[in-house]
Simulated scan of single mutants.
Amino acid sequence: MVESLSRCVKWDASGGKSGSAFLKTLDDRFIAKELSRAELQAMETFAPAYFDYMSSAVTANRPTLLAKIFGCFKISFKKTHKEKSSRTKMTQMNLLVMENLFYDQQFSKIYDLKGSTRNRHVHVTGRINEVLLDENLIQTAHLAPFYLREHSKRIIRGALYNDSKFLADLNVMDYSLVVGVDSEKNELVVGIVDYIRTYTWDKKLESWVKDSAFLANRGEPTIVSPKQYRLRFLDAMERYFPIVPDRWMKHHDAPEEEINGVSDLWI
């Protein structure tokens, strides 16, 4: 891990709006995200609960979609200003190191899904590793839905239920389910990311304003409470990933071979 982190490059993580700096190791195994002061303070409470939860998941052989966190680190370095009187300034950066969900993978499409349709659409350009959002998926789902086999559906449903309950109990919201689509193998690689953000007083105020009569006709609120966010998230993911029709569901004249695009799940 140390060897990997010693060789990092700046990474333009499309899809995110936090403004945080991202680094990716040259071997593509780890991602490091710069933490704000508020996020670092939140980690003091979140980290012990997170590692307890992940440890219990391993012990009980319980699937989880939470992208694995390896720790928080503070980096200090000196920056020298090129002036007549050379001055040296100490700079610090707090980093969250986590796994790269898409290590050693090639995808035809990547989605960042929050279960909301408010401002969740991007113009498709066809760029490599372009990140699409909820509305992009909804627009194409009637032609190419993400059908899952019964076993995969059961795993993702259970993992989403447990993970989202864990996050809601810790007052966490605004997380995303990232989905990588491997069209050649008919596989989906999925994981929950951005689950450090807590429901602070400023988010409560924004939620109250959005829910007020003054903005009542402008669609669903951007910010909701963690419990509301969880319910909306679970409901959307249930619709986004339908179970594959079996011989009891499909038309009696359709041969079994006609069911295409069935995806296996990797978490």
Rank of each mutant, 00 (worst) to 15 (best):
Q41I: 09
A42C: 06
M43G: 07
E44Q: 07
T45P: 00
F46K: 06
A49Y: 02
F51Y: 15
F51C: 02
F51Q: 08
D52M: 03
Y53N: 01
S56K: 14
A60L: 07
N61W: 03
N61V: 13
N61S: 08
N61F: 07
T64L: 00
T64E: 04
L65C: 05
L65Y: 01
L66P: 04
A67N: 11
K68G: 03
K68R: 15
K68D: 07
F70S: 00
F70M: 01
G71K: 10
C72S: 12
C72P: 02
C72W: 04
F73I: 12
K74V: 14
K74R: 13
I75Y: 10
I75G: 05
I75H: 11
S76D: 13
F77H: 10
K78Y: 14
K78V: 15
K78L: 15
K78H: 14
K79A: 11
K79F: 05
T80D: 15
T80G: 07
H81T: 11
S85F: 09
S85W: 06
S86P: 03
S86L: 12
T91H: 14
Q92S: 12
Q92H: 10
Q92K: 10
N94S: 13
N94Q: 08
L95D: 00
V97A: 07
M98C: 01
E99C: 01
E99T: 03
N100I: 02
L101C: 07
F102C: 04
Y103C: 08
D104I: 02
Q105D: 10
Q105I: 01
Q106H: 11
Q106W: 00
F107C: 08
F107W: 00
S108M: 11
K109D: 11
I110R: 14
Y111N: 08
D112A: 05
D112I: 07
G115H: 06
T117Q: 15
R118N: 04
R120Q: 14
R120P: 06
R120L: 05
H121A: 10
H121Q: 14
H121W: 11
V124I: 15
G126C: 12
R127F: 04
R127K: 15
R127G: 09
I128G: 04
I128D: 12
N129R: 13
E130N: 03
L132Y: 07
L132R: 04
L132M: 07
